[in-house]
């Protein structure tokens, strides 16, 4: 059954149809929320709130865009509100709270964890809008047109934002690498000093 058919059923109050939509898109929404708020527990709550809001307002969805895009828009709004409140209360982002462990072998697990932590740390340093653009474009494979539907603005503005976000990410990732090199050299220096 297509999304449009499920949405039409859900608009008539069919709960199982909506739950099928939830099963299809909960991972995407959760991933987006995780990237935006950098907190797995909060992301879970925000995902649930977004899906609940989608169900409550599904009759107002006119199917002019894809359901997934519409759902992302709700999730982004929820995340922005959350970030606004968190900023208000001065709580910092903590990138260690996102899920990092999932690989099978321990070596791969360590390596993958490291990559995830680096990417998450670099993403967390971006402004919220650039973080959203990068996540939507690079991870969710949305077009600029769809990103502009989710975030507002024009496709051109979304493209410029994405370009700027990638440049910032490159800077942050390089900085992270440099930081790691510095940390490693400091550790080596400390080891050398202790050997002496």
């Amino acid at each position: 059954m297509t999304d449009a058919q499920l949405v039409a059923l859900a608009q008539q109050g069919d709960l199982p149809a909506f739950e099928e939509l939830v099963r299809r898109y909960q991972r995407d929404v959760y991933g987006l929320a995780c990237r935006l708020v950098s907190d797995a527990e909060e992301a879970k709550d925000l995902t649930q709130q977004s899906l609940l809001q989608a169900f409550v307002h599904i009759r107002s969805f006119r199917q002019e865009s894809q359901f997934r895009t519409w759902l992302f828009r709700i999730a982004i709004n929820q995340c922005y509100n959350f970030l606004k409140n968190r900023k208000k209360y001065g709580e910092p982002l903590d990138c260690d709270e996102v899920p990092l462990v999932a690989e099978d072998s321990p070596e791969a697990d360590l390596s993958a964890q490291d990559d995830r932590r680096r990417v998450q740390a670099a993403l967390a340093r971006l402004p919220a809008k650039q973080r959203a653009v990068v996540t939507l474009k690079a991870e969710q494979d949305l077009s600029y047109e769809e990103i502009s539907q989710v975030l507002g603005g024009t496709p051109g503005a979304a493209r410029v934002n994405y370009c700027q976000a990638l440049k910032n990410m490159r800077k942050f990732l390089q900085g992270e690498d440099g930081h790691e090199v510095a940390m490693r050299s400091a550790a080596a220096m400390a080891a050398r000093v202790s050997r002496r």
């Binding site: 991933g31 995780c34 990237r35 996102v98 899920p99 990092l100 462990v101 999932a102 690989e103 993958a112 990559d115 995830r116 680096r118 990417v119 998450q120 993403l123 990068v134 690079a138 991870e139 990410m169 990732l173």
Partner: peptide, 8 residues
């Protein structure tokens, strides 16, 4: 790098 490090 981003695509290679999706969330677990």
């Amino acid at each position: 790098t981003i695509k290679g490090a999706p969330l677990a």
